Amino acid sequence: MTQMLETPQGRRIAWQGRKGRGPGVVFLGGFRSDMTGTKALWLQEWADRTGQAFLRFDYSGHGASSGTFEEGSIGDWFADAATVLTALTEGPQVLVGSSMGGWIGLLLARAMPERVAGLVTIAAAPDFTEQGYWAGFSAEQREALLRDGRVETPSDYGDEPYVITRRLIEDGRDHLVMDRPLPLPFPVRMLQGTADEDVPVDWALRLLDHATGEDIRLLLVKGADHRFSTPDCLQLIGQSVEEVLRAAAR
């Protein structure tokens, strides 16, 4: 059953969870995704089957939460996730971050490492507003963004284009993780498809090289795309979460 949590900023965050064995697992969705996506639901079924505590939620402007997508920013969604982690879980959690959720997970790890037992990323997209959108914009798109405060970009996942706002880009610069030390003092498993057209393999390699920690591994899956939602890919996600849980228990 979906429940609502009000954040200190007055946003209402939709969430679903189950009590169970700890440490709990928290799913962090991607850009314009929500907690009813394939990976979130697969992990819910996995948690029901294994008895693991599990929580999934929608950032503001996503899914059933309050607000509109265009009003949001990385800082807002990071604050939403931090509130969820603080208010709805106890003790260190294993974070599972998909695409933008990987960036949010890294921000949580930097801000509150005592609440992170481990991290699993799926096509992690740290700093994508800068190294993806801004770096890829033409001079005309940059000019339009600065002049109009927004620019539309095509979406591969629906008929409607993505609206990228000036606030999203500028706020993203305040939350970069690849431009400063990134200690990850817990088990980390990163999953990346080689056929991902949204997050290049190079990003995963750079993150692996940039982050510091004693137990960080990257698994490349030949032919997997950004969705990373085939039955084999979903099994790999489950195996990675279980591996992190075992490592965290040592």
Rank of each mutant, 00 (worst) to 15 (best):
I104V: 15
G37K: 08
T83V: 10
Y162R: 11
L28I: 04
R115E: 09
L220Q: 12
A124K: 05
Q93P: 10
S73M: 03
G37C: 06
T36L: 12
R150E: 15
G61F: 00
M100P: 05
E243Y: 06
R11M: 07
L43G: 09
T38M: 12
T165V: 08
A117D: 09
M190V: 03
F54Q: 04
A87D: 14
R206S: 13
T68F: 12
P92T: 13
P181R: 11
G61A: 00
A248G: 08
L41Q: 05
V177N: 04
S65G: 12
D76L: 15
Y162W: 15
A204N: 07
G30M: 01
G17I: 04
V163L: 04
S240N: 00
R18M: 15
P92R: 04
R142Y: 14
V120K: 11
I74E: 02
H62V: 04
D225L: 06
L88S: 06
E114Y: 09
D148R: 08
G102P: 02
T194F: 04
A81S: 13
F228K: 11
T2E: 13
L207E: 00
R147W: 04
L5C: 03
T129M: 14
L28T: 01
P113W: 05
G238F: 01
E170G: 05
T165M: 08
R166V: 08
Q192F: 08
I74K: 03
R56H: 05
G238W: 00
L219V: 05
I216G: 01
R21D: 12
G118Q: 02
L182Q: 08
A40S: 11
L43A: 11
T89K: 11
D174F: 04
T212C: 15
V199R: 00
D58I: 12
P23D: 09
L176M: 15
F228D: 03
G136R: 10
A53P: 04
A123P: 13
L207W: 01
D48L: 14
D159L: 02
A125G: 10
E6H: 10
G213I: 04
E90L: 06
L176G: 08
H226Y: 14
D174H: 13
F137V: 10
E143T: 10
M1T: 08
E214Q: 14
P113K: 03
G30E: 00
L182T: 07
E140C: 11
R32A: 10
F27Y: 14
T129D: 11
E130G: 07
I13K: 03
H62I: 05
Q239G: 07
Q131F: 13
A47D: 06
S240Q: 00
P113D: 08
V188F: 13
G30C: 01
R11N: 06
A87K: 13
A40Q: 02
L145W: 14
Q16R: 12
W103L: 02
W77L: 08
L119Y: 00
F78V: 10
A123R: 01
S240K: 03
I13R: 01
V96T: 12
A224L: 08
S98L: 12
G238H: 04
Q52P: 00
V188D: 07
S99D: 15
R32L: 11
E143A: 14
S33W: 09
Q3A: 12
F57Y: 02
R173I: 08
S60C: 01
C233E: 09
S60Q: 05
G29Y: 10
G213K: 03
A47V: 04
G102N: 02
G61M: 03
R189G: 00
R250E: 07
P154G: 00
P181N: 11
L176Q: 12
